[in-house]
Design a protein around this nucleic acid. Structure first.
Lengths: 145, 145
DNA sequence: AATTATGCTTGATGATCTTGACCGAACTAT
DNA sequence: ATAGTTCGGTCAAGATCATCAAGCATAATT
């Protein structure tokens, strides 16, 4: 489905999505129309879901983050899911197997804010919260091979 | 630190980091040199950490993912941290407070592969793994206000 | 009140992107 | 085998875009 050239393109763009087509095509070893066409196809096939930016949450004032595991009280599953989606400080959340139904990431500014958000969840779910101390692995791609 | 124009720029780029400066400046309502200069400063201040792409792991063959909580055995903290960092299928990992020391995300292709990876960790840590069934909240920014 | 710093616009220039015409290798069907 | 088709590539042009220098307005500083 993806050949070596596609993988090279992806690896370059992961590090700099705003590189010019010319520079990209130089690094890949193809002409720019070829790379442009490959890019178009990678987007079309939804291999590349989007070009985006990585923002430092601290710069937005969110100096703290936490992993929250959420186990809805009986009958509360859908309400809790909606509540999670409507909590903008929860910046990602997965629904998982096991005792915890949801595992999410929470960005917040103060402990007071954390408390407020968790209080709201606690009306309908048991929560288990771990404050993030550091991130030994920053977001990265798995092996492309 | 950030004004409304900066926030607008960020919101636009989050959705399309490869938009031309011209189009971006139209949407922001400034001339392109102004936007260019603001972009430069946002990068300089490390508000924008990088321009990158969002890749569908499925397109890379990783049709499964899991949240793994890792509690190193006594004395194994640093070895386990290193082991996590050297496991490329772990695409992000936080060090957190609480009983679990690390919480990571694992991308994998088959249950067999999951088993192999967890076996390696289990020599030096207790692990608790939850398979991701869906993602009710895709990665997003917290409120910029 | 004068001065300076900041952040903006404009317009010229040079660089980049896109498009269309064309080419060749690989695969299919006769 | 060979003719046709498809796919992915190059090249060159015209169209578009980014950058730079110059100049202006506003707000802060002295």
């Amino acid at each position: 489905m993806l050949d070596d050239l596609d993988r090279t393109i992806i690896e370059i763009l992961v590090h700099d999505a705003r590189i010019s087509l010319k520079e990209l095509s130089n690094q890949v070893g193809l002409s720019s129309p070829s790379v442009s066409e490959r890019l178009r196809r990678l987007e079309e096939k939804k291999v590349i879901r989007s070009f985006t930016i990585d923002i430092d949450p601290v710069a937005l004032g969110y100096s703290l983050s936490a992993i929250v595991r959420v186990r809805p009280l009986p009958g509360m599953l859908h309400i809790v899911e909606k509540l999670i989606q409507e909590t903008p400080e929860i910046t990602e959340c997965d629904k998982v197997t096991g005792d915890d139904c949801f595992v999410g990431k929470l960005q917040f500014r103060t402990m007071e804010q954390l408390d407020t958000i968790l209080d709201r969840l606690s009306e309908r779910a048991e929560t288990n919260t771990s404050i993030v101390k550091s991130s030994p692995v920053k977001r990265r791609l798995p092996p492309l091979s």
